[in-house]
Design a protein around this nucleic acid. Structure first.
Lengths: 342, 342
DNA sequence: CTGAAAGCGCTTACAG
DNA sequence: CTGAAAGCGCTTACAG
């Protein structure tokens, strides 16, 4: 049988209340008493039963998730996953609120963070757009005991913060490894469609991609990125223009959102032209279709459901002062071809 | 506030004990009383607090994991993950025992299953080698209230059982999609190294692989499988012989264990020969190295840690009569290239 | 067939 | 600075 607070109290010759005070590092205990209790804890190998503690506390974990609004399919999928997890976690004394903010807008994000009622808030998970105001807002939350997790896109370190998302440089390198092989030794150029070079994850993906192509596929040339602003219309138009202007394009790396426009531009090409190898990001419905019909060769994905569950687990672990299981919380760079789409 | 058993008891005009009886479907309650309680439950929207219930029950989940013994790296990795999860889950009133049985041996597996003391056993997770004796043993366990989960390799359905592992036909198809593209339009033959064609997952992988190559890469010919028996020495020797005997091999799909031998055979080829594109299974240390130095182009993997945690979650959910979250418990067919290795 | 009381392992006022 | 008692939401003997 595992030792309980009763065993510790008896061994230390104190009451349950005092054991509890020491366990929770509450003030007002003589240092000598603290020591007696800690010795007993160590000797017995006592470990607190978190479930029982939460029951006694009637603890409710209150978390806020902050995500960008707008048509971005990935973000909407993320939001759905948060809602789903929110429904399920009500059974586990966890209350999750979603707050939407304009995308790419540090000021709005900071305002949302500063508007949070911190009294009974345990943690915040946010898709971060970095800016000094955002960092200040996060520092403030942290000082008030709110745990913080960044989601999908990271920013400069805030104390005790944790990032839940993929390594975007490695994602770009991976895309290059696939595309380089897929073009099959043909020489030519590769087009790049990004959302915005003002967003950190897109920049990192491009950097990783370029580095590998330059080092390992000397026959391939990477064009400057087309900025689609995560908008299908814009992305489609830019790509169409580029495809019309040159006939040496053998591959395409679509880094950001707006895949619908990209897909349409590719499908409109004459069927007699040689295949352009394509690697894109995020397994949305459009991307699935494009994989199925051969328009996309591969899609790099991050599992939004996993990210949300991971963010919740990490926030809870931090609130409870428990360790985070790194292996479980690492978000994989997933690769999907037509046949391993789940 | 969520309603509790007290609220239900009051609403139904019965005691806590009776509410508990109805909640847990214990016998010896008048059907009229049952109905009164159930009406109250429905009306209040009562949902049981599983954590509190487990505390009251001093419930300990006791699970047995049955895995094949032997040098197979994947299985040893799986065993490590079970040990790890076992350590962590002691904090959550979960006791996990590992039982090792000879591989590919239905009789031994059945004997191990029949030897299980079912009195305080809540669930079993097993890497299944199917045979009538095994199925009978599982049916017996199930009749005694032991929940069952198959791991990595499935067998014919046992009532209420659940499979935690990848879709192996899709894995083979995925391998073909990669290899077909990687050989880059060259015509030639593809070698196949399997563990044993007597094991269901290997057969399924080969089937999926062949189907895609036949349909989409008419220039490629797949050789009959070399059976390496999951043994590096045997696999290496067979592959070496084949490579020596013919010069038209452009690709290799390594379906089973024994990758060390495969890697050595490939590395021993003269550097002047053209590259053989290679897709293998399971991201073991040897496979990581082979990816890093370019001997392997891609590795298809199933996450053993995820599988173990998933098996535990599923077993607990079944014991508690809770629903399984399918999206969370689906094991992905992971693809690793050099740059997305975690 | 049903209920009152004690208990699971903690925490929380309240009193001293 | 410390302790006795009640309570979190359930379950479990025991009694009737």
């Amino acid at each position: 049988m595992r030792p309980t607070v009763h065993d510790v109290a008896e061994a230390a010759g104190v009451s349950l209340a005092t054991v509890d005070r020491v366990l929770n590092r509450r003030a007002g205990v003589r240092s000598e008493t603290i020591e007696r209790v800690e010795t007993a804890i160590a000797r017995l190998g006592y470990v607190r039963d978190v479930a029982a503690a939460n029951l006694a506390k009637s603890r409710v974990y209150r978390f806020a998730f902050i995500v960008p609004e707008g048509p971005n399919s990935f973000m909407r999928g993320l939001e759905r996953e948060i809602e789903l997890s929110g429904l399920r976690s009500r059974l586990e004394r966890t209350d999750i609120r979603i707050i939407k903010v304009p995308p790419f807008d540090g000021a709005a994000l900071a305002a949302a963070l500063n508007g949070l009622e911190t009294a009974d808030l345990s943690g915040v998970a946010l898709v971060a757009a970095g800016s000094p105001a955002v960092i200040a807002a996060l520092e403030r939350l942290h000082r008030r005991g709110v745990e913080i997790v960044t989601l999908v896109s990271d920013i400069e370190v805030v104390s005790r913060s944790h990032y839940v998302g993929i390594d975007n440089v490695a994602a770009g390198r991976t895309a290059a490894g696939l595309l380089g092989r897929f073009v099959g030794g043909r020489a030519g150029t590769i087009a790049l469609v990004v959302g915005s070079m003002a967003v950190r994850d897109h920049v990192e993906r491009c950097d990783g991609f370029r580095a590998v192509i330059a080092a390992e596929y000397p026959g391939l040339d990477v064009l400057p990125p087309l900025e689609g602003r995560d908008d299908a219309r814009t992305a489609g138009r830019l790509l169409r223009d580029t495809l019309a202007a040159r006939d040496d394009i053998v591959g395409l790396y679509s880094v950001g959102a707006g895949n619908r426009g990209v897909i349409e531009a590719l499908r409109d090409r004459s069927a007699s032209l040689p295949h352009i190898a394509v690697v894109a990001h995020e397994l949305t419905d459009h991307a699935r279709q494009a994989l199925a019909d051969g328009t996309f060769d591969a899609v790099i994905n991050q599992d939004a459901g996993h990210e949300v569950r991971s963010a919740i687990r990490v926030l809870k672990a931090k609130v409870d002062g428990l360790p985070v299981i790194d292996a479980q919380e690492t978000i994989r760079i997933e690769i999907y071809l037509r046949d391993n789409v789940p």
